[in-house]
Amino acid sequence: MSGNATVKSGWKDIPRGGYILEAGNAEQYKTGDWRSRRPVWDEKRCIHCLRCWVFCPDGSILTEAGKMTGIDYTHCKGCGICVEECPDKVQALKMVPEGEAGEA
């Protein structure tokens, strides 16, 4: 199993040929640590048009009952597409350097 588990298996204990034997395993690959900048969501400005949800290439926009509820920082790679797609008049998302963001 590829990913960023803290203790990794040796060559005798992993499937041959790089096969991954579990379906839906991409969720276990925590790509959030690739990020240098993160999108920060302002709930008060958000109109829940869900353009960000449509365009996010990683499914990192969290929703509930058709409304945005936050961002999955465990998987968000910080590409910034959601910020780009958020309507100009709304600006509920902005990119912030990781060191200045604080914990979400």
Binding site: S2, K8, W11, G17, G18, Y19, I20, A23
Partner: peptide, 15 residues
């Protein structure tokens, strides 16, 4: 199962 997934410095060597 998946064949051909990206396999970087943390597992390629083992394969």
């Amino acid at each position: 199962l998946t064949m051909g997934a990206l396999d970087l410095y943390d597992f390629y060597f083992e394969h």
